[in-house]
Design a protein around this nucleic acid. Structure first.
Lengths: 146, 146
DNA sequence: TATTGTTATACTCTATAACTATA
DNA sequence: TATAGTTATAGAGTATAACAATA
């Protein structure tokens, strides 16, 4: 979480949130993606993504182009300013990641990587004993005690 | 982040947020703490903590007792129901942590621990080149490009 | 004058229902 | 009817200013 905070601070230098940065990266790598595709890739619902795209469009870094085949769709593209901003952001992030990597040895990086992969794959053993979620009637709330 | 999500899901079984759980743990370990002390320990501002405490008091797990010496202060204590809920929550968390630990070998745990400690201590090299934050006038927003 | 708990307020994120225009 | 983008709205989480009571 500490590392994530520093990552966000780096992006904030360019007035970008993590979501906005992700949008730039994904649109840059997939010119013409549709809003819904972008949203499912980022796990952001369409209603919430509209505001993000709006802001980036008004900022002049993103453009909505109507699709020729299906007039419900709109292709998302980076503008020239968008490509420039993305390049600056990626430079910031790369610098950040390099700094991070250098604070660990090669062996530590390998070990961390493998440990985190295992933790990310962790599927918790279901352990809901037949006790009620919270409305436990035996929990009569009464006096305090020091 | 994935692990944190699972942690939150465990607590949600008892209808507890991470902050609420922290409050129960800290008040349980420090009976009589004041709201401001609690807030600075949790990095939650007093205005925001009031609502959290309100909810736990109304739920019957926390109690506000007026301080005898300074009538501006209020001691926070767990009720009997609060101690019971805390015990259940700690059991959930302990089960969760045990599951996590068992998905790694002892060597992996040691290595992960040391690597994360180093990353948490990471202090980013200041790298703000004399470029403007974002209002760069040379970023004239113009046409898109596929 | 300073401090504790509190109210009010605002701004971001997130989540859901419903609308429009297309298909 | 189904889908894409959109609007409106509500709920959390977070941040700041200001207030009453007390020191």
């Amino acid at each position: 979480m500490q590392v994530h905070k520093i990552f966000l601070r780096r992006l904030s230098v360019l007035e970008l949130s993590a979501t906005e940065f992700s949008v730039l990266v994904l649109v840059g790598a997939n010119p013409g993606v549709y809003l819904r595709q972008l949203g499912s890739a980022l796990d952001v619902s369409p209603p919430n993504l509209v505001a993000v795209v709006d802001r980036l469009v008004q900022r002049g870094v993103l453009a909505r182009l109507p699709s020729a085949e299906d007039r419900r769709l709109q292709e998302l593209h980076l503008t020239d300013a968008g490509r420039h901003l993305l390049a600056r952001a990626e430079a910031q992030v790369e610098m950040f990641e390099t700094g991070l990597e250098q604070s660990l040895s090669a062996a530590e990086r390998r070990c961390l990587d493998s440990a985190l992969k295992k933790l990310a794959a962790f599927d918790p053993p279901r352990a809901d004993p037949p006790g009620e979620p919270s409305g436990d009637p035996r929990d009569d709330p009464n006096q305090a005690g020091a």
